[in-house]
Simulated scan of single mutants.
Amino acid sequence: MNITGRVTKDARVSTLSDNRQVVNFSVAINDSYRNKQGERVEQTTYFECAYWLSAKVAVILTKGTLVELTGRVSARAWTASDGEAKAGLNFNASNIKLHGGGKKSQGEQEVKSGQYAEQGENKKATLKEPEDDLPF
């Protein structure tokens, strides 16, 4: 499955007890449609994402970055401490493709200098500063 959306906050790397590392981040996907009354309805879907192949990718997964992810989706349900039923979506990413930059960070400097190599179809990931600075 493929999803395309914006990273909602900077990615974080977690190290598990067996020394494996996972990159955790969330992605928001905006959608809109017109209902039967002709009114425009905006809908946002959030995915909690995990990427296991390389922790180095965390430096480029910054808030606002537009990404296309390939992987598997799963649903989870739980009961909150207040007794309310909750549900969410997980996405286990196997490939990450960048479509635009988020906030400027040290990580982007490393990517620009070619020190970061991504596994998969895209051998090298490079980011370019957008020519027009958008307000979001």
Rank of each mutant, 00 (worst) to 15 (best):
1 M>G: 13
2 N>P: 09
3 I>L: 04
5 G>Y: 00
5 G>H: 04
8 T>A: 02
10 D>H: 03
11 A>S: 05
16 L>A: 14
16 L>G: 04
16 L>P: 02
18 D>C: 03
19 N>Q: 15
20 R>H: 09
20 R>Q: 12
22 V>P: 01
22 V>Q: 04
22 V>K: 02
25 F>E: 10
27 V>F: 05
31 D>H: 07
33 Y>K: 10
34 R>M: 09
34 R>I: 02
35 N>G: 06
35 N>I: 08
36 K>D: 10
38 G>W: 08
39 E>R: 09
39 E>S: 10
39 E>Q: 15
40 R>A: 11
41 V>N: 05
42 E>C: 06
43 Q>L: 11
46 Y>G: 10
46 Y>M: 14
47 F>L: 11
47 F>Q: 09
48 E>H: 15
49 C>F: 04
50 A>M: 03
50 A>D: 01
51 Y>N: 04
51 Y>V: 01
51 Y>L: 02
54 S>L: 07
55 A>H: 11
55 A>C: 07
58 A>I: 08
59 V>W: 05
61 L>W: 00
66 L>R: 08
67 V>P: 04
67 V>D: 03
67 V>H: 00
69 L>N: 07
73 V>E: 09
74 S>K: 14
75 A>M: 14
77 A>Y: 03
78 W>M: 12
78 W>H: 12
81 S>K: 13
81 S>T: 15
83 G>Y: 01
84 E>Y: 10
84 E>W: 07
86 K>Y: 05
86 K>R: 13
87 A>Y: 05
89 L>F: 00
91 F>R: 02
92 N>Q: 12
96 I>E: 07
98 L>E: 08
101 G>W: 12
103 K>Y: 09
104 K>M: 13
105 S>L: 03
108 E>R: 03
111 V>N: 08
111 V>L: 15
112 K>E: 09
113 S>T: 14
117 A>F: 03
120 G>S: 02
122 N>A: 01
123 K>R: 10
124 K>N: 00
126 T>E: 07
130 P>Y: 06
131 E>A: 13
132 D>V: 15
132 D>A: 14
135 P>S: 08
135 P>F: 00
136 F>C: 11
